[in-house]
Amino acid sequence: MRYALTDPEWRVIEPILACKSRGVPCVDDRRVLNGIFWVLKSGAPWRDLPDCYGPYTTCYNRFVRWRRTGVWYRILTAISHRDDAQVRMIDGTIVRAHQHATCIKHVEAEGLGRSRGGLTTKIHAVVNAKGLPLRLAIAPGHQHDSLDANDMLSDMPEGGVLLADKAYDSDAIRSLVAARGGWANIPPRRNRREPICFSPYLYRDRNLVERFFNRIKHCRRIAIRYEKQAANFLTFVKLAAIRLWLRVYESSCNCGCFLGPRLRCTLLVV
């Protein structure tokens, strides 16, 4: 079945899901998850969910209930907690909002901002040296990238390396990384008076965070924002990130082959 969880992927998720011990037996969690992933990938409305996944109301209610109880956050945290790479990459990407997602009064409170392309939402992500997501957040599309950097980099590893573009070239971000004994490899802006240490050679691997955005936008529910609530849209972003991690768990050879040559050399030096 297209978009369905494979057996290895399901074995990773199954122990993390909350179990209902009393009352009427609940619907099969795997079938519900397959329905949620079908909506994520296809971008179709919940009402168009195929009958093989059960009632669409069951999938939607379970999707919202698990969001409120923090199940999606626990899954993403559990499958990414083994990451110990010293390299972090941060960036943001803009997603246009569908007209059905903008018919609300307080758009900024729901992560919507008016820019040149209309109402948009910005997805912030921190990825590791393999291009796999560690931290995710959303903000209004007109908001500057550096405003959310402090929260996104709160768990920066000791002695780590941060790769980011010029939008993150600020003294506050550089001081945050330096306070942890790390190095922010960020290209300096033209208006900087003092010289900044910057490695163009290492900066080439920053494209991994761009590749991450490219991969999650294969999910049509993320390429265009259809959700009115910011929490639901962020949940879909986390679901796409979870699916990327599950595929790595299924196919990784644990030999470091996902690391680029420049990053492997940097980690050896650091």
Rank of each mutant, 00 (worst) to 15 (best):
T58K: 03
M89F: 13
P50N: 06
D91E: 14
T69D: 09
Q86F: 07
W46Y: 09
R68C: 15
V87L: 15
C26I: 10
Q86H: 13
Y60R: 04
S42T: 14
H98I: 07
H81C: 11
T93S: 13
V27F: 15
C103E: 06
R96G: 14
C19P: 13
L40V: 03
V24N: 04
V95C: 11
H98F: 04
T77R: 11
G35W: 03
H100C: 14
A44H: 02
D28G: 03
Y56Q: 09
Y56M: 08
I79V: 13
I90M: 11
K41P: 02
T58A: 08
V95S: 02
H100K: 04
W46L: 00
D83L: 08
F37Y: 05
R67D: 10
Y56P: 07
T57Y: 03
R31H: 07
R30E: 00
P45Y: 13
R88F: 14
A78E: 14
Y53C: 12
D83C: 14
M89R: 12
C59M: 09
T77P: 08
T57C: 12
R68M: 08
V39D: 12
K20S: 12
A78K: 02
F63G: 01
W38A: 03
F37N: 00
V39G: 05
G70F: 10
R31D: 13
Y53D: 02
L40S: 02
S80T: 08
K20C: 14
A101N: 00
C52S: 05
Q99E: 11
R31M: 10
T58S: 15
V24P: 04
V24H: 06
